[in-house]
């Protein structure tokens, strides 16, 4: 039973990280119907920026909590800035181009960002310090769930709540929902769609950066390639849940996290990635719109 619980909570942690990344995918897709392939890279850049800031601050001899907060904030700012810039360079000029063009441009951007970090930094795995302390009250449960996992779960929950509030109740959230329903119509009623798209990229990138910092301190090492696999997994999660739907992305992430956790725990760990993709293929065959997605009807 303990093993089951451990796998369950492990899956939950995994799922919450996927959720943080998947949100960016699903929000962008909801508005401009583009798979932002570079999203995984944005997450990787967030983790790298945090690592650099942490290293510099540690050498300056700051205390751990302060370092964690500053590194987190800077990582979020930088990821958001990268997300904004990527949109301006690679996607905005292609707003009216065929979708295939935008998709290829996104793949190019992903390739570029990976190699940019590879060349400017290193191709080796760098150790990422675990800054989250072991809480004393967690001691009795330490064999099932660690303190880092608890922090990840709580942070994810907070981000989800904030995001829901933003989308449900603020003006920009309303504008986002409007733009995702009909871009032309929302332009007619005075919404600056370009601005809305930029904000979407910024918010999506910022949540990805939070995910990046959390998972890096959970796993304990990063390199330039971590973004790609995580990005693909998160995309799978977004599709599972029904792309374009925010609760769907969260649900899909948890489902994917559990699938992977149980499959590796009970079947075999060699085929971890295969399970994720097989699951995706099965979902797409039997329910192409995802778990919570609405089925699309094409009108002529």
């Amino acid at each position: 039973m303990d093993y089951f619980l451990e796998l369950f909570l492990g899956g939950l942690t995994r799922g919450s990280i996927y959720a943080l990344i998947a949100l960016g995918y699903t929000m962008v897709y909801g508005i401009i119907e583009l798979i932002n392939f570079a999203h995984g890279e944005i997450y990787m850049i967030g983790a790298f920026t945090a690592l650099i800031v942490i290293s510099v601050l540690t050498l300056m001899g700051m205390n751990t909590i302060a370092i964690l907060v500053i590194a987190g904030v800077i990582a979020v700012i930088y990821s958001a800035a990268y997300g904004y810039t990527v949109e301006k360079i690679a996607y905005k000029p292609l707003r009216n181009a065929p979708r295939l063009s935008a998709l290829i441009s996104a793949i190019g951007m992903s390739l570029f960002l990976q190699n940019y970090v590879l060349l400017a930094q290193t191709s080796d795995f760098l150790p990422f310090p675990n800054l989250i302390p072991d809480f004393e009250f967690m001691e009795p449960y330490a064999h099932i769930i660690g303190s880092t996992e608890i922090v990840i779960l709580i942070t994810t929950a907070i981000v989800m709540v904030l995001l829901t509030i933003m989308i449900k109740f603020t003006n920009i959230g309303k504008a986002m929902r409007a733009a995702s329903q009909d871009k032309t119509m929302s332009m007619l009623v005075g919404i600056n769609v370009n601005h809305v798209i930029s904000v979407t990229f910024v918010v999506g990138s910022a949540t990805a950066a939070i995910g990046g910092v959390l998972i890096a301190s959970h796993v304990g090492m990063i390199n330039f390639y971590v973004g790609f696999i995580a990005g693909i997994k998160a995309f799978v999660a977004a599709v599972l849940g029904g792309i374009g739907s925010i609760p769907g992305a969260v649900l899909g992430s948890f489902v994917l996290g559990w699938t992977e956790s149980f499959a590796t725990g009970y079947v075999s760990s060699d085929y971890e990635d295969v399970f994720a993709f097989l699951f995706l293929v099965l979902i797409l065959i039997f329910r192409p719109q995802g778990i919570l997605g609405r089925s699309e009807k094409h009108k002529l």
Binding site: L34, V239, D273, V274, L280, V281
Partner: peptide, 24 residues
């Protein structure tokens, strides 16, 4: 399996297929 999928889904499923073959 990908007959019913549109452009972007297709890209990701084919990518997954390629990775599955390599991992196997």
């Amino acid at each position: 399996p990908v007959l019913r999928l549109r452009g972007d889904y297709l890209a990701i499923v084919t990518l997954g297929f390629g990775e599955i073959i390599r991992i196997i």
